[in-house]
Amino acid sequence: MNKKTNRRKFIQQVGMATLGTIALSQIKPVSAFANSLDGEVLFTLDALPYEFKALEPHIDALTMEIHHDRHHRAYVDNLNKLCAKEGIQEKSIEVILSKVGSYSAGVKNNAGGHYNHSLFWKMMKANGGGLPTGAANDAINASFGTFDQFKTKFIEASKSRFGSGWAWLVAKDGKLNIGSTANQENPLMDISELKGTPVLCLDVWEHAYYLKYQNKRADYIDAWFNTINWDTVNAQLKLAK
């Protein structure tokens, strides 16, 4: 059996074994929400803008598939169920994040998970990386001196986030800052210490790299720099203005 067949078979097995249990790892057993969804779904999972294997060898196809189809899917499903259960009708994820402190921990976790992952997928592309372009290049140099100084600081924030979380480059008051958040919190949340418009983000939950890098988070971070889509960074910078 060749490698490809092996992988396909593995995915099938994973797929079959997980049916019905995905949501369990997140908040509450699925059964707790039975019949609570009244047909209206507020949030949907977008397809990736590239193939699962597009980021290889930096991020492997299986990691991308499970990360998108299982983890992100679970955040979306749980968020929809919780919104239905708690009577939330707000359709803008940004608005929910901006007052997330007034909702349940479940809404915070899953709204953050949905927003963060949606942005993260767009932050990467095949043949990405290299030096920042356009306004991103100017803003990074203005705030950090050089790209290398920026990179060192961003790597440090990514490595030093203990446990699960995210590293961020944010724009606030015309300046860029680097920081990190715990679990699925993010800089748009009212409860966040780090605030600003997300310009670049990196998932440092172990699920983002464990299949390929195991305990070597630093190697994952280094490799991830080769996938950055600077066009998205520039688009986020425009939003911040």
Partner: peptide
């Protein structure tokens, strides 16, 4: 922690 189970169970913590 995900490191305790990810290689074998991936997202299936339960």
């Amino acid at each position: 922690w995900e490191h305790a189970y990810y290689l074998h169970y991936q997202n299936r913590r339960p």
